[in-house]
Amino acid sequence: MAPIVEARELTKVFRVAKDRRGLLGAIRSLFSNEGREVRAVDGISFSIDAGEFVGYLGPNGAGKSTTIKMMTGILHPTSGEVRVEGKSPQRSRREVVRRLGVVFGQRTQLWWDLPVRDSYELLAAMYGIKSREYQATLTRFDDLLEIGAFLDVPVRKLSLGQRMRADLVAAWLHRPPVVFLDEPTIGLDAVAKARIRSFLQEINRTEGTTIMLTTHDMDDIERLCTRVMVINHGRLVYDGSLEGLRQAVGAPSTLRIEYAAPPGTAPQGPWTLVSWEGNVVTIAFDRSRCTAADVIGRLGQYGEIRDVYMAEPDIESVVEQVYRRG
């Protein structure tokens, strides 16, 4: 089976002009070759099969957004090419974007002053969705995301979580086989995040939508993605399963235990003791060698545990680790 999304030697070089102010300055910089080149994306290749759920990770400025913009036809690559269902989003933009869904977490694509329903109707017209299909889709998404409650509320009055749900439905309205999500959980609370995650999981499973997701949230990746790609300084430094990433990194997770009473001796086990102050003990352990449940069980032998706090390595440090190794 041919891959549904493909990138071959994808490269994007930006020319950062010397900063000139004002209109005259801008005109002058048109004709000058001053400035330096920035390779935002540097020879990336990958292919995604239909139905895959891919997490795309990397620190800020690594080239994530630039990649997404090239995948969706917003930007032309400097060299290399993109294929979505075998077609180039650059050469046949309108044909390709008809089969894509896109969500940019930072800004809505809905009509700000209109009720959500009006936006959907406009999108239905733009994508030529038949009325019966549209109704069926809306009913189904109401089941999954409970958008019915605010369908008639203007977008500007929605909470961030509601707005993101509304935007997700908008991206799926025309049943695209491929969807790109750029930070869909940014700024949301835990409940809203959980709701969006279960929606994404469900839609990926039942509709077989191919999803490429960029995020800063390790939990998003952990709960959703079957495959992870890591980009840093414009290069793909990891492409494989999440398990593989963990093993490659072996970055320590941190566990802080509060005992009912100070333990008699320093807890010993397959971890390193970070600190021990009174009845609070902090340790670091490697998830690829033992599970959290195992660690907590063994720590329980040193006294009654009153509270547990666990911190996962943050994404920046994971990526940095991968980059250093890869």
């Binding site: 036809g73 917003i74 894509l100 896109v102 694509q109």
Partner: peptide, 12 residues
């Protein structure tokens, strides 16, 4: 950068 939003729609 709002021009992006116009480019992802299947119309001129």
């Amino acid at each position: 950068g709002e021009f992006d939003a116009l480019l992802v729609r299947p119309w001129p």
